[in-house]
């Protein structure tokens, strides 16, 4: 899935909507209807779902290479197999391993798609479809996108180290962002750690920080560390296997084929 100018624009706009949707507690005006009740995450979930759909219409308009589709399906299945395992193993978010390493090898566009399809397939299989899903999908897609955007020339230890660092940061950011978007919803309005619509962002951030410490921050940090360790441990062999798959899936370029005069054809 090559990233064309159009894809880049689409991804940038979708990410802008995503940032608004994730950070809504910091931005919302107390006079707006969404500030009350429990509507905001639901409405924003609908918006995000529509935006993700538009992104995928744009990504697949004009056709995706059939090998990319099959690869996407198989890697999503691998992620969906791994995801339930991670619940039992000290918070290793194993699904991130697949998304980060897959995004790294197959590029940012594929990484973006992989993040969404993995979480969607996993939610379908485990009966986990709900308003949280679009947030999770977009979050995971960003993780895959970012992995694809890391500098391409790194190889060997440097690459694994960079990916491990990235996985830690991305894992932490993913947890915090999801927590942020669901914070007002989870806690209700009547505690000292609750979200107060219209407060200065700094105040809300402070309360959110305390809320995170009280709830999931420890878990998020643990997950970030274990995910990074996971990348360090399996990174090299898994990257090798994925690269092997990638080289088997792409083939001879037109330049290499130009040697012969017999009007040779290569695949698209």
């Amino acid at each position: 899935m090559p990233v064309t100018l159009r894809t880049a624009l689409v991804l940038a706009l979708a990410s802008a909507v995503g940032v608004l949707a994730f950070c809504w507690p910091l931005l919302i005006d107390p006079n707006q209807a969404l500030a009350q009740g429990t509507d905001a995450p639901l409405v924003l979930a609908v918006v995000l779902l529509s935006v993700l759909s538009v992104v995928f219409v744009a990504l697949s308009d004009g056709g995706i290479d059939v090998k990319a589709i099959a690869m996407l399906g198989l890697l999503s299945a691998v992620g969906a197999v791994l995801r339930p395992l991670s619940a039992g193993t000290a918070g290793v978010e194993t699904v991130f391993l697949v998304i980060v390493l897959g995004g790294r090898v197959f590029g940012p566009g594929f990484g973006f798609a992989l993040g969404s399809t993995t979480l969607f397939a996993s939610a379908l299989l485990t009966g986990g479809v709900g308003p949280w899903l679009p947030f999770q999908m977009l979050g995971a897609s960003w993780v895959g996108l970012g992995a694809g955007l890391l500098p391409g020339r790194l190889r060997g230890r440097g690459e694994v180290a960079a990916l491990a660092g990235y996985a830690a940061v991305a894992g932490l950011a993913y947890g915090v962002a999801l927590n942020m978007s669901w914070w007002p919803f989870q806690l209700g309005g009547d505690t000292a750690l609750s979200f107060v619509a219209g407060d200065p962002p700094v105040e809300n951030l402070r309360r959110f920080w305390l809320f995170s410490i009280a709830t999931s921050l420890g878990w998020d940090v643990g997950r970030a560390i274990t995910t990074a360790l996971g990348v360090v441990v399996v990174g090299r062999p898994v990257l090798a296997i994925l690269r092997r798959g990638a080289t088997r899936a792409v083939f001879m370029t037109a330049a290499a084929a130009a040697d012969t005069g017999k009007r040779p054809r290569t695949g698209s």
């Binding site: 084929a257 040779p264 698209s268």
Partner: peptide
């Protein structure tokens, strides 16, 4: 061959 697997087809 050659559209899917790559490679060079003559003839």
């Amino acid at each position: 061959v050659p559209h899917f697997t790559g490679g060079l087809l003559s003839g």
